[in-house]
């Protein structure tokens, strides 16, 4: 073993107060074992990129964190609340955890502004004027304020994804989950979405991103997690992860995505 590898392997995460703690999490789809003994602790303000081949369970894992998927074994504690069948607790966690989807999932029957104000008004019980003011602030931040009164169907993919990010931010979440946010975009629109995400990271948002954008991982992540066949195979700082991968599976994966 080289020095670098030892140093990388020995490094422990996280370094701050944890906001998400998963211990021994398992999940099955019928007979299929999707998540195997996941231990993951995320500190406040940490920026994590999760990568791995398709079908490795990375989306399933982050979807367990706001219980869009149910885990069958182990414990997940988010913001001090354990995720169980308790609906009230699930709703409490979900208001603190924003999620951005691969296919945006904006509400097509509402305008961009209404998409952003709906949850603050109904879940956070904010007055309409206040919710709108905040929505406009976030829409400005994702540089799409001038489209506020359009419907999602009238926007490009990149614009829709930026609205989806603003919609999540309007709930003032403590954690943001990104589930392949740029995978459904035309190549020329990837950058505008990544720029918004980089801005968020710079502002200290706790983020977990499932993405294949390795450039993004290198420039903003505090930690890169590599998953394969339902397991966390390796996790490290981007520098160590890309320059000194430990396991053969990681090396193979990196060679496949970086050499083309």
């Amino acid at each position: 073993m080289t020095m670098a590898q030892t140093a990388g392997a020995a490094r422990t995460f996280p370094q701050g107060e944890p906001i998400i703690q998963c211990q021994g999490v398992h999940k099955w789809y019928g007979e299929f074992h999707v998540l195997k003994n996941i231990d993951l602790s995320v500190a406040k303000g940490e920026r994590i990129v999760i990568c791995g081949p398709s079908g490795s369970g990375k989306s399933t894992m982050i979807r367990c964190l706001n219980r869009l998927e149910e885990h069958q074994k182990g414990s997940i504690i988010v913001d001090g609340i354990e995720l169980t069948g308790n609906l009230k607790n699930i709703e409490l966690v979900r208001r603190e955890v924003g999620m951005v989807f691969q296919h945006f999932n904006l509400f097509p029957h509402l305008t961009v502004l209404e998409n952003c104000t709906l949850a603050p008004i109904w879940v956070r019980k904010k007055p309409k004027a206040e919710a709108e003011e905040m929505a406009m602030r976030y829409l400005k931040r994702v540089r799409i304020a001038e489209q506020a009164h359009k419907y999602p169907g009238q926007l490009s993919g990149g614009q829709q994804q930026r609205v989806a990010i603003a919609r999540s931010l309007c709930m003032s979440p403590k954690v943001m989950l990104f589930d392949e946010p740029t995978s459904a975009l035309d190549p020329e629109m990837v950058k505008e979405v990544l720029d918004v995400m980089i801005g968020l990271a710079e502002d200290g948002m706790t983020m977990l991103c499932v993405t294949h954008e390795m450039g993004f991982a290198k420039s903003v992540a505090d930690r890169v997690i590599f998953m394969d066949r339902g397991e966390i195979v390796e996790q490290n700082t981007p520098n160590e992860f890309f320059n000194h991968p430990q396991s053969d599976r990681t090396k193979l994966f990196l060679s496949q995505i970086l050499n083309h």
């Binding site: 706001n66 869009l68 609906l87 709703e91 409490l92 979900r94 208001r95 955890v97 924003g98 999620m99 989807f101 296919h103 999932n105 904006l106 509400f107 097509p108 029957h109 709906l118 949850a119 109904w122 879940v123 919609r167 999540s168 709930m171």
Partner: peptide, 24 residues
């Protein structure tokens, strides 16, 4: 995805149905 987006925002069942799913 519409159900998931509504859930992920913390809307409860009746809010999700009344505001997102039923209108569509």
């Amino acid at each position: 995805g519409q159900y998931e987006a509504a859930d992920a925002l913390g809307l409860n069942y009746w809010q999700a149905m009344g505001k997102i799913i039923l209108p569509q």
